[in-house]
């Protein structure tokens, strides 16, 4: 079983799809000659040439617009938007065009494209290059949204995303690009969109997470075990459509749910599964559905502040322990109990 860094796994996924399907093309800022600022397209230009691997100007609207136009006329573009925040200049092309054209045309066109972006805090990139922004996309039917954190997941899900006939937003935590992990390359390594993964079994609480909060949840589960609390860890992987069945099956058994999110408490992606879990399993829960998030603040630049901003395994552990012991949602660290 090969080991790869996550950015190498991403490159491998694009490479393998390009080798199988000559309609797959790559475009974005610095993706060709430079191999991507996060080295997620190294070697693709040499192997596939400048017609299929294209550097663009700093023109996000043109990048995504061209991807939509090309996707509706026979290509499968993989577009890179360097930082997820830059979707702020091209949401129109994504939300109003890519996500709508299949519907507006009553299915006459499909929009098979992937819009990849780096996300997340932890690397000192400051307030404008460190968010995750999943909820910019979650309220848009027509989009699929994937978030990854390891080599195997990135490879398997990106290959599925490129093969998918719908526009897929593919989010990659920048701190995870260097993560080395075991992976399966080739057809067997492909992972379906829309399916969550149970990464650790447990009986007393389900930790539901996504992106780079998954390893935090896994580490917390380990600590909880030492405290005598058995935690199940579910990696949601795809936010739209999200895997209700796996999540509800897990929580129906553990009867407690904690959602671990890297986004501000207000309006984070966890509201949706929290609401569904609460509605579907209300009478069976032993505690309120609880969300562990970052505070409602821009991502701080200063390293010390930034490390406090992100949920840590210790913090998740203390929150889960409190929930399990009291059957009440604990306050977050930044709020004094009233």
């Amino acid at each position: 079983m090969p080991r790869m860094r996550m950015n190498q796994a991403i490159t491998a996924a694009i490479r393998d799809e390009m080798a199988e399907d000559d309609t797959v093309v790559v475009l974005g800022e610095d993706v060709a000659a430079a191999g991507g600022v996060f080295k997620t397209s190294v070697g693709l230009l040499d192997e596939f040439g400048p017609n299929r691997v294209r550097d663009t100007p700093i023109s996000e609207m043109a990048i995504l617009g061209a991807a939509v136009g090309a996707a509706t006329t026979g290509l499968r573009p993989v577009a890179e938007i360097m930082f997820v925040e830059f979707f702020g200049v091209c949401l129109d092309q994504l939300v109003t065009q890519a996500a709508k054209l299949h519907y507006l045309t009553a299915g006459a066109v499909t929009v098979p494209m992937v819009a990849r972006a780096s996300v997340g805090a932890g690397r000192g990139f400051g307030a404008t290059h460190s968010q995750t922004c999943e909820t910019w996309f979650t309220a848009t039917p027509g989009l699929k949204i994937v978030s990854v954190w390891d080599a195997a997941g990135a490879y398997g899900l990106l290959r599925s995303a490129i093969r998918d006939d719908n526009p897929v937003v593919f989010l990659e935590p920048k701190c995870a690009y260097g993560n080395r992990g075991d992976m399966v390359r080739g057809e067997e390594g492909i992972l379906p969109l829309g399916e969550a993964a149970v990464l650790r079994s447990g009986d007393e609480v389900t930790l539901l997470s996504l992106g780079q909060m998954v390893p935090v949840a896994l580490a917390a589960a380990q600590m909880l075990e030492a405290e005598g609390i058995s935690a199940e860890v579910v990696d949601l992987r795809t936010l739209r459509p999200w895997d209700r069945e796996t999540v509800l099956t897990s929580v129906a058994r553990t009867r407690r749910a904690v959602i671990v999110e890297e986004n501000p408490a207000s309006g984070g992606w966890g509201h949706e599964p929290a609401s569904v879990i609460g509605a579907e399993l209300f009478g069976e829960l032993l505690a309120p559905v609880h969300r562990v998030t970052t505070p409602d603040v821009p991502v701080p630049f200063s390293r010390e502040l930034e490390l406090n901003y992100l949920p840590t395994p210790e913090y998740v552990t203390s929150q889960v322990t409190s929930l399990c012991n009291t059957a009440r949602s604990p306050h977050p660290w930044w709020e004094e109990p009233s």
């Binding site: 309609t23 093309v25 017609n51 299929r52 609207m61 043109a62 995504l64 617009g65 061209a66 991807a67 939509v68 136009g69 090309a70 996707a71 509706t72 006329t73 026979g74 290509l75 573009p77 129109d92 092309q93 109003t96 065009q97």
Partner: peptide, 19 residues
């Protein structure tokens, strides 16, 4: 979005040439 046809047109033109 009124102006996006120019960007989408780039993609359609690229696809026509590539294919």
């Amino acid at each position: 979005g009124v102006g996006s046809g120019v960007a989408l047109g780039c993609g359609a033109a690229l696809a026509a040439r590539t294919r």
